[in-house]
């Protein structure tokens, strides 16, 4: 037997990868929910971007599926301190959905089926940084992880990646979302450890 086994694979350990401060690596995919998992029939699902002037841009489930998809592989970081590396998704870039939207808004409030909201600067949803995803690791996105579709904004803490997303309200002012209005950080950059208001 040779010194180097051809089957050898170097396993990635916690100390091999750089994680945001205060995070630990997990192989699981923990489920965090602030309410019951909504049941959304696909024939009634829609995604709506509403501009600050009230103009609405709508996509049905079938229309979303017909758009060119991307397959981002990204690291995700939850504010409860777990990080999961190399997660793969399939969905539509927000750049594509925003292509024909006329707006001068600086902020977006994402709304979900079930009533959840989260706020983001609009620029954080553009330039290849955000998607509406409907597949995870090659399978349809499970309801407990936000299926049929969720927002994916991996450069911010994962509470910004709203599960069961149903739309974006574009606005000129920053309106705090569900967790941001009870102490969580307005922006939520994991690399600057922006967990709570004032961090």
């Amino acid at each position: 037997m040779g010194i180097v086994s051809p089957g050898f694979r170097r396993r990635r350990r916690d100390d091999d990868v750089q994680l945001p401060p205060g995070q630990y690596l997990t192989e699981d995919f923990p489920v965090l929910s602030a309410g019951p998992t909504p049941n959304i029939p696909l024939d009634r699902w829609e995604f709506v971007i509403a501009s600050e002037t009230g103009q609405e841009y709508r996509w049905t489930w079938d229309e979303l599926q017909e758009l060119p998809a991307e397959e981002p592989t990204v690291d995700i970081h939850c504010v409860t301190k777990w990080s999961k590396l190399g997660t793969s998704w399939r969905g539509v870039s927000l750049d594509l959905l925003m292509e024909d939207v006329e707006t001068t808004a600086d902020y977006a409030l994402a709304h979900s089926y079930g009533g959840y909201t989260t706020n983001l600067p609009l620029e954080d949803l553009l330039d290849g940084k955000a998607w509406i995803v409907y597949e995870y690791e090659g399978s349809e996105l499970a309801p407990q992880h936000g299926g049929p579709a969720r927002l994916l904004v991996p450069h911010l803490y994962f509470w910004k990646s709203a599960k069961w997303v149903r739309g974006l309200q574009l606005q000129e002012f920053d309106e705090l979302g569900f967790w941001e209005s009870v102490g969580y950080h307005d922006y939520g950059d994991p690399w600057r450890e922006q967990r709570y208001a004032g961090d």
């Binding site: 489920v31 965090l32 929910s33 602030a34 309410g35 019951p36 504010v79 409860t80 967790w179």
Partner: peptide, 16 residues
């Protein structure tokens, strides 16, 4: 009470 989250969220049993 939904406690598997970023905090505790308590919902009305009648209307959620």
């Amino acid at each position: 009470v939904y406690g598997h989250a970023l905090g505790w969220v308590a919902r009305c049993p009648s209307c959620e």
